[in-house]
Amino acid sequence: MEIDRNQVESLVKTEGGNLKKGATRKTTGQPINSRQPGDFRQSGDSIKPSGSLFDSSSIEGIIIEGIDIVRTFRMGEVQVRALRGVNVRIARGEFIAIMGPSGSGKTTLLNQLGLLDTPNSGKVIIEGTDTSRMSDSEKGRFRLHNLGYVFQDYALLPELNASENVYISLMMQGKSKTEYETAAAEILTAVGLGDRLQQLPSKMSGGQQQRVSIARALAHSPEVLFADEPCANLDSQTSKEVLELFKKFNQEQGQTIVMVTHEGWHAEYADRIIKLKDGIIQV
């Protein structure tokens, strides 16, 4: 797939992982659902990225806003407060890394932002849509059209080959056979698996499976890609390849990415780092 590198503006990261004020980068600039599968060439818009918590002056360009998110789990008789009133804003086109020690609430936060879980209180607003008012099936439809996921253990459907794993969500969207097959082939080619379309996950290496997983997450051109420790099961070299792939889609397509990681060098690929400890964002 051809990528117009001239569309990508340089990114300047501050020490705290924040984008410098006034730095510009490409974003889609299109409303949700306006992109087409396989449409990986987008024009760039400038954004004003938020601070480590958020910058209230920069509502424009914000794609996800988490407001006072509280998530409590009950483990037997004990209540565990995984998130204790987290506020977060993520701008369109940002590559965010969520870091923190084990049990700090990284994955829990990702799950709230990615609509895989529902907070006990607080709100998640995506592209101006208050998702706390959505039913489960509405969330499902929202995820299908607007969000993509990459899981730690790839989470591919073992009975589907690479191409099928990628196009299943496009099929669900009602795309025609030609549309979804073409889109799957294009995105798999883009992640370097153009020659393994018919391969079953069981016949692939971990790195290849994670690439399929990324292709699946990106096939329907989601507004936000969520990745939960995508390199946890991969060796350093493969991890690097996967992270570079993320970076490529972030820079060249303006793909918003929210990634959980506990490796410092993984976070270096991100524009900004959100640090969590004991369910609270560390400033």
Binding site: G140, R141, F142, R143, Y149, F151, I168, S169, M172
Partner: peptide, 15 residues
């Protein structure tokens, strides 16, 4: 887990 993944990527429950 597969059902969970299917639900996560937006495959409807009734499907």
């Amino acid at each position: 887990r597969q059902i969970g993944v299917q639900k996560a990527i937006g495959i409807e429950q009734n499907v």
